[in-house]
Simulated scan of single mutants.
Amino acid sequence: MFLDTETIIERNDNPEPVFSLARDMWVERGTKADWDLLHDLHYKAEKLPIGPRFWRLELYGETIGVLVTGAPKGMLRERHIVFPNLKPGAGETKLTNTNRYNYINANFRVISRFVIDTMYRGIGAGYRMMNLVSRMEGNTFMEIQSSMSKFNVFGQKAGFRFVKPMNANKYEQVMRFFRSHFNASPQDFEAIVAEVEAKSPEEQQRIRDLCVDFYMRNSALENTSNGGAAMERRAAQMTLRDAIKGIQQIGLASPMYGIWKCPDPKGTVPDRLPLLAFDNQGPNERLKL
């Protein structure tokens, strides 16, 4: 015997797409082994930042995303625009410089490397993880310098606010250097290398030494690192490709600078969070568990 049944059909006027597996994704502390697993998918796979900390996106025990944070730079032009009181000025002393660096190290971290497995891109995992890790780090400010932020708004979706893009400090010097010594376009790395490799071994060595010298004199990273024998050793180990890549980086790169301020009191955010915890509040609001 069949009973009468009532069929109810509901219509959501504002449907939101949901990737069902996202409910089972978790953000937690990771290790360098997680980075080693996925780092080949990142365009800066060679080096890690100073003081790296690893975070992973986990699904059923497998690592499907890795975010690496690092220690912030002591001097950063774009940061000085946002925080003018941190900008050095006249009358600086060793004490004021030391206190500035101590303050920056205590209150800032920077998102240095971030990669999601290709199987899980385009589902909103990136900006959600970025926001949650920024909370879990426990610092007041999280920075990011990313060229991709010009084309992909994952940082903006995570709640970061960005400074207007600017040319690198050494843009003019680098352009003059490349145009004085190479026929290839300054932006075309492989064409420059090929142009040099077509020359005699003696000329290749001369140009390599020229490029290394220019890089060492103009790199802010090298000039704020330990000099002396260590700097000479790094210069001796540089290849032509290393030197050209370094010169392009200091003169042609123009990553966008973004900053995010944590709304959560320090020590209140767990070390492990479901990815969809991002959706419980706005990206700049206090976490609701």
Rank of each mutant, 00 (worst) to 15 (best):
L3R: 14
I9H: 10
R11G: 05
R11D: 15
P15S: 11
V18T: 10
S20I: 13
S20C: 09
A22Y: 13
R23Y: 12
V27H: 05
E28Q: 09
T31H: 12
K32Y: 06
D36N: 07
H39Q: 09
D40S: 02
D40Y: 04
H42A: 05
K44C: 01
L48C: 01
I50Y: 12
I50Q: 14
I50V: 13
P52G: 02
E58S: 15
T63Q: 08
T63I: 07
V68S: 02
A71E: 12
K73N: 09
R77L: 15
R77A: 15
V82D: 09
L86M: 00
K87N: 05
K94T: 15
L95S: 09
T98P: 00
N99I: 06
Y101T: 05
Y101W: 09
N102S: 02
Y103K: 04
Y103F: 06
I104T: 00
I104H: 01
I116K: 03
D117C: 06
M119A: 08
Y120K: 02
Y127C: 03
M129S: 03
M130A: 05
M130N: 00
V133E: 06
S134Y: 07
R135T: 05
M136I: 02
N139R: 10
T140Q: 12
F141H: 07
Q145Y: 13
S146Y: 12
S149A: 15
V153K: 13
V153H: 09
Q156L: 07
Q156K: 14
K157D: 14
K157N: 11
M166K: 07
N167S: 10
A168G: 11
Q173I: 12
M175K: 15
R179M: 14
H181Y: 10
H181T: 02
A194Y: 10
S200I: 02
P201R: 08
Q204C: 05
Q204A: 07
Q205Y: 10
Q205P: 08
I207A: 08
V212K: 03
M216Q: 04
L221D: 07
S225P: 00
N226H: 05
A229W: 14
R233K: 11
R233N: 11
Q237M: 12
T239L: 07
K245I: 14
G246P: 04
I247Q: 03
I247V: 03
S254L: 13
W260F: 00
K261C: 07
C262H: 02
P263W: 06
P265R: 03
K266H: 06
K266I: 10
K266G: 02
G267I: 11
P270Y: 13
D271M: 00
D271T: 02
L273W: 04
L275G: 01
L275C: 01
D279V: 01
D279K: 04
N280V: 13
G282H: 05
N284P: 00
R286Q: 14
L287V: 01
L289M: 13
